[in-house]
Amino acid sequence: MNGSGARRIIPVITGIGHGQTELSAYDDALWRTGIGNFNVIALSSVIPPGWEPALRQEPDVRQVWGNRLYVVQAAASSGGDRETGLAAGIGWAIFDHGGGVFVEHHGKAADAASALRAVERDIELSIADLCERRGAAPAKRGKATIAAMASRPCCVLAVAVFQQEDW
């Protein structure tokens, strides 16, 4: 925690992107979550003490073209060759000592509701395993999920935005 005892927020944002290819759909999802002009660097799943995830509509970062941006992300995409249900989600647990863990899952199914159920189940199972492994019950829990039906190139994205760094 900082000197005032306040926790720093990790914005957790979801978005759906479309494009002519899976790659451009992913770029559109990044754009729609407010991080399209960063070089995204994926982190593993440990939340440092003093930080807390919170659902947001957009990140609390000033866009500096090309800066590094550290995130935890879950993304599912489809090339649109057939109608597919896509889902992605991030779950988290914060422990009494202030640190925590993220889990990120994504999936595809015949429909969006089935894909979402599978992702939410996997989030719950992973959180349970990570908590058990650490011998700690979560003091706080949360999740952010998103799903869509894709009949053209599409990407669903859940992203937890830590911070940016200049080169």
Rank of each mutant, 00 (worst) to 15 (best):
I9P: 07
A148D: 07
A76G: 10
A118D: 12
D81L: 13
E165Q: 14
T14H: 04
A29E: 06
A148Y: 01
P11N: 05
S77E: 03
R134W: 06
P48D: 05
G5T: 00
V101A: 09
P53C: 05
G79Q: 10
R133M: 06
D166K: 15
V71F: 03
A88L: 04
V161R: 03
T21I: 11
P48Q: 09
L30G: 02
S114H: 10
A150V: 07
N39L: 08
I127Y: 03
G135P: 06
T33V: 14
Y26H: 12
S24D: 14
V46D: 09
L86V: 08
A128C: 05
T84W: 01
V103T: 14
N37L: 08
G91F: 03
H97I: 03
A75R: 02
F38I: 02
V161W: 01
H106A: 13
A147D: 07
P138E: 02
Q164L: 01
S126K: 00
Q63E: 15
R7K: 14
I47C: 08
A115M: 07
G36L: 11
E58D: 08
K140N: 12
A109S: 13
L43Y: 01
A75W: 04
I10A: 01
L86Q: 06
W92Q: 05
V64L: 10
V46L: 10
L86F: 05
G66R: 14
W51K: 08
A118F: 03
V103W: 00
A128P: 01
S4W: 13
C131T: 10
N37G: 10
D28L: 10
W31Y: 13
P49L: 07
P138Y: 05
A112E: 15
R7E: 14
A75P: 04
S4E: 15
A113H: 13
D28Q: 06
E165D: 04
N67A: 11
G99Q: 11
V103G: 01
P59G: 09
F38D: 00
V61Y: 02
R32Q: 12
H18L: 10
T145P: 00
S77L: 11
G89R: 05
G19D: 11
V12T: 10
D111T: 07
R62I: 14
S151H: 12
F95T: 04
L43K: 10
A150R: 10
V72K: 10
V12D: 00
V64R: 11
K140T: 09
F38G: 00
G107L: 01
V119G: 05
E58L: 11
D111P: 11
I127W: 02
A29W: 09
S4C: 11
I94G: 00
E58W: 13
P49R: 12
S44G: 13
P53S: 03
L69A: 05
F38E: 00
W51D: 02
G34T: 05
N67H: 15
D96H: 09
E132L: 11
A137H: 03
I47F: 06
H18T: 14
A54S: 08
D122A: 11
S77N: 13
L30E: 01
L130W: 06
A54Y: 00
